[in-house]
């Protein structure tokens, strides 16, 4: 009886610790105080950061001069004018570092600026989703969930062996591992 309570309690305790970390990070506990200062720092108090090194990224919304829309943690966006950048098109993403020359103007370090085409962002998310599907398929194939005990355990025969090969799976040391 006691043993059946220990594990759920430990999981709940760990989730509480995790929630505490979410709040602590949200408050800013123990985080670096730049430079380079980030978009949130610029949004909070850009006047105090003039002359400091900043790093930010955002979507190009104007090209003459180049203006990006950068997202901050609370979901809002701020517009920043970027100087010294290569030719860009609206919709492209800029990753820049440089000096904050005025409250909403960054003098970018041209050599270190990255320009991302919209399709590159689409690629990044698409290939990531493919990866997630790959892992989900391996889990479903090799592991099963036992709701009564709330545990995942290795299948004795993988779904692939059972339904595609239609024969016994190979001997699986994982079933006997006693670590």
């Amino acid at each position: 009886m006691v043993r059946s309570v220990i594990r759920p309690s430990a999981v709940l305790g760990l989730l509480f610790v995790l929630s505490t970390l979410f709040v602590f990070y949200g408050v800013g506990v123990g985080q670096p105080n730049g430079p380079p200062f980030d978009t949130d720092d610029i949004a909070d108090d850009s006047a105090a950061l003039i002359g400091e090194q900043v790093e930010t990224s955002g979507t190009v919304v104007e090209t003459n001069p180049v203006v990006i829309e950068a997202e901050i943690d609370d979901g809002r966006t701020i517009k920043l004018t970027i100087e010294n950048v290569p030719t860009v098109e609206p919709g492209e993403t800029l990753l820049v570092t440089g000096e904050l020359v005025d409250e909403r103007i960054i003098g970018a370090n041209t050599e270190r600026t990255v320009v991302r085409k919209p399709w590159e962002v689409t690629y990044m998310y698409t290939i990531s989703i493919i990866g997630a599907i790959l892992v989900a398929a391996r889990i479903a194939n090799q592991w099963r969930f036992r709701p009564q005990e709330f545990v995942f355990e290795p299948r004795e025969r993988t779904l692939f062996d059972r339904y595609v090969r239609g024969r016994s799976g190979r001997h699986d040391p994982g079933d006997e591992y006693d670590g």
């Binding site: 892992v135 391996r138 889990i139 090799q142 592991w143 290795p154 299948r155 699986d172 040391p173 994982g174 079933d175 591992y177 670590g179």
Partner: peptide, 12 residues
């Protein structure tokens, strides 16, 4: 002892 199932665990 690192079975195919445990390989998946590392991937997770």
């Amino acid at each position: 002892w690192i079975s195919p199932q445990l390989v998946t665990v590392a991937m997770v």
